[in-house]
C-alpha cells in the first residue's frame, strides 16, 4: 500500500535522467522507463534474433539486468537509452555466440504479419522482396546490422547511434555509406543466385 502522504510524482513529465535518478529507489520510476523502452528494445532484439520467442526472452533479460544495475548506473557520457541498447547488444551477441552460428533467419512471421492486409499477388511479390532484403541485412557484419536497425527501426540520429555504438557522428556516416554499398552488393548476389536457381529449375 502506498503512503497517502507521499507527494504524487508525474513520471511521464520527467526526462530519462530524472527518472533514472528516482528509479534507484523508486520502482514506479523504473516502471515508466520500462514503458518508454519496451517496444524499442523488443524491436531491436527481434530483428537481431529473427524470432519472437528469443526476442521475448532476451528483452526480459535486458530489463532485469538494467533493474539490477540501475542503482550503480552513473551517466558518464552514455545516456540511459544508449546504456540500455548496449545491454541488449551484448546479450544478443552472447546469444549468437551460444547459438554457434550466424543464423540466416526467415523473418516470415514478421513479413506475413506486416503484409497480410494487402492484395494477394502484391503480397507475394513484396514478401519475396522484403525477405530478400532482410536476408541481405542479416548477412552483414554485426555493427552494420545494428546501425541499420537503429537508423530505420528506431529512427535515431547519427549522434544517438554514435552514443550507443561508441563512435563519432562522422564515423557513423562513414559506416552507413559502407553499409549501403555492401547491402547493394549482397542484394545483387542474392538476385543473381535467385535468377540462376530459376533458370536451373526451368531447364531441369
Amino acid at each position: 500500500m502506498k503512503n497517502p502522504f507521499t507527494k504524487r510524482v508525474d513520471y511521464k513529465a520527467l526526462d530519462d535522467r530524472e527518472l533514472v535518478a528516482l528509479a534507484k529507489e523508486d520502482m514506479d520510476a523504473f516502471g515508466e522507463l520500462y514503458e518508454r523502452y519496451l517496444q524499442k528494445i523488443y524491436s531491436y532484439v527481434f530483428y537481431r534474433t529473427g524470432n519472437a520467442h528469443d526476442a521475448e526472452d532476451l528483452t526480459a533479460k535486458v530489463f532485469f539486468r538494467a533493474l539490477s544495475h540501475i542503482a550503480t548506473y552513473v551517466e558518464k557520457g552514455v545516456p540511459f537509452q544508449a546504456w540500455l541498447y548496449r545491454i541488449a547488444h551484448n546479450l544478443v551477441a552472447n546469444w549468437h555466440r551460444d547459438q554457434g552460428r550466424r543464423k540466416i533467419i526467415a523473418l516470415d512471421e514478421y513479413v506475413v504479419h506486416s503484409l497480410k492486409s494487402e492484395a494477394p499477388d502484391r503480397v507475394t511479390e513484396e514478401r519475396e522482396e522484403q525477405n530478400q532484403l532482410l536476408q541481405a541485412v542479416r548477412r552483414l557484419p554485426e555493427d552494420r546490422q545494428q546501425l541499420l536497425l537503429l537508423k530505420f527501426v528506431e529512427q535515431m540520429s547519427n549522434a544517438e547511434i554514435g552514443a550507443i555504438m561508441g563512435r563519432t557522428e562522422g564515423a557513423i556516416k562513414s559506416l552507413y555509406h559502407r553499409t549501403l554499398l555492401a547491402l547493394r552488393e549482397e542484394m545483387e548476389m542474392l538476385q543473381n543466385s535467385d535468377r540462376n536457381r530459376r533458370l536451373d529449375g526451368s531447364e531441369g
Partner: peptide, 17 residues
C-alpha cells in the same frame, strides 16, 4: 540508393511485443 533506402524504410519498422 533511393530505392534501397525506401525498401529499408518499409522492411524495418517498429514491432509491438
Amino acid at each position: 540508393f533511393v530505392e534501397m533506402i525506401q525498401a529499408l524504410q518499409t522492411a524495418l519498422t517498429p514491432l509491438e511485443p
